[in-house]
């Protein structure tokens, strides 16, 4: 009897975010007749796909009790690198050399840049024992500065129709960014649940000492995860740049906070070891629906920020109350 009650409680606490989302949709739908339309449905999903990409990487990082504040800047730099290389290639005046890039080449270069920045984060954290908060805060500034240097402070625009496909295109009746983020989420779920490294991520977050003494190469796992987070930020950068048809030097500012919000609302513990990619997707959807609903209801953008902040707070308070009961 007791155990069935317990497991019911547990199930209920797991379903809480889903119930919250359902209620949220219901309320907004009652107040606005534009909410439950097909075009709005895709609109919301398209808007959140960038955050979902970034937050997937952030979830892996946070599961190891880490944090990555640099994702917004990394997104901007890798987007700018892709756009710049695709549009005008790169010149090496001393060697009298010009290298042009195809669309695929530019995209890969952007993802490599994102991965490299993430790799540097991982190295700073593991080799030089810099706390993740500080290491990635430094990277936030460095990557933003590099973006300014690369773009000279001006947007790189006019990228053409092929490029716009990744942000605005449709494929089989579904927006391309939604395909991309779904693919990312699918792979990440596979990684976190079905592979050795996924298990190690949870173990490191759950008890780093025990994981180390079990012979797990902690440093390697951390470097891989921060590299992945950088690459996923780059994928987000591709989508943002493509949607705007322009790489903005200040793109992605503040995205790290939206992504941490999605992770936390999705039930992942900032102290590591507990949480899931699926939860984060739900968290990102809740934030997206909330934003969308407040716009549809003509609420001032200033109030939107206040509401978003309160939702984060309430989510964590509820989560704490749940863990206390168990």
């Amino acid at each position: 009897m007791q155990t069935t009650l317990d497991s019911q409680k547990k199930l209920l606490s797991k379903l809480q975010p889903l119930i919250a989302l359902f209620v949220l949709c219901l309320v907004i739908g009652l107040l606005s007749d534009k909410f439950f339309t097909v075009s709005n449905f895709w609109n919301v999903l398209r808007q959140i796909s960038v955050n979902i990409c970034i937050s997937t990487g952030m979830t892996l990082v946070v599961l190891m009790a880490g944090i990555d504040l640099s994702v917004g800047s990394v997104l901007a730099l890798s987007g700018a690198v892709t756009a710049g290389l695709y549009k005008s290639g790169i010149e090496f005046p001393t060697q009298n050399l010009f290298v042009g890039f195809t669309l695929l080449g530019g995209i890969l270069a952007g993802i490599v840049v994102g991965g490299l920045l993430g790799f540097f984060n991982g190295m700073a954290i593991t080799r030089f024992k810099v706390p993740p908060f500080v290491a990635t805060l430094a990277m936030l500034t460095v990557a933003r500065g590099l973006t300014m240097l690369w773009t000279q402070g001006f947007p790189i625009s006019g990228l053409g129709k092929d490029f716009a496909f990744f942000g605005t295109g449709w494929f089989l009746g579904v927006p391309v960014p939604v395909w991309i983020s779904a693919l990312v989420v699918g792979l990440a779920i596979l990684l976190s649940n079905k592979t050795k490294i996924g298990r190690y991520i949870y173990a490191i977050g759950g008890n780093e000492n025990a994981a180390r003494l079990s012979g797990i190469n902690i440093n390697r796992v951390k470097v891989i995860v921060y590299t992945l987070a950088g690459m996923l930020a780059a994928v987000g950068g591709l989508m943002v740049t493509s949607r705007l048809d322009s790489a903005q030097p200040n793109a992605g500012t503040g995205y790290e906070l939206d992504s941490i919000a999605a992770v936390v609302i999705g039930g992942t513990s900032l102290s590591g070891g507990k949480g899931s990619i699926g939860g984060t997707v739900l968290g990102a959807i809740i934030i997206g629906v909330l934003n969308n609903g407040l716009v549809l209801l003509n609420v001032s953008p200033f109030w939107q920020q206040v509401v978003k902040g309160l939702v984060i707070l309430i989510a964590v308070v509820i989560d704490k109350a749940n863990t206390k009961n168990h």
């Binding site: 949870y202 173990a203 759950g206 008890n207 025990a210 079990s214 012979g215």
Partner: peptide, 30 residues
């Protein structure tokens, strides 16, 4: 508590932790 168990993991996950590669992984997946 400090160095031995991963408290939030199951008994099964704690048992397999040090030998995932050798005993649990098949074709790259657990």
């Amino acid at each position: 508590k400090r160095d031995g168990i991963v408290p939030g993991m199951t008994v099964s996950q704690n048992i397999s932790l040090a030998s995932l590669g050798e005993r649990v992984e098949k074709n790259g997946f657990l």
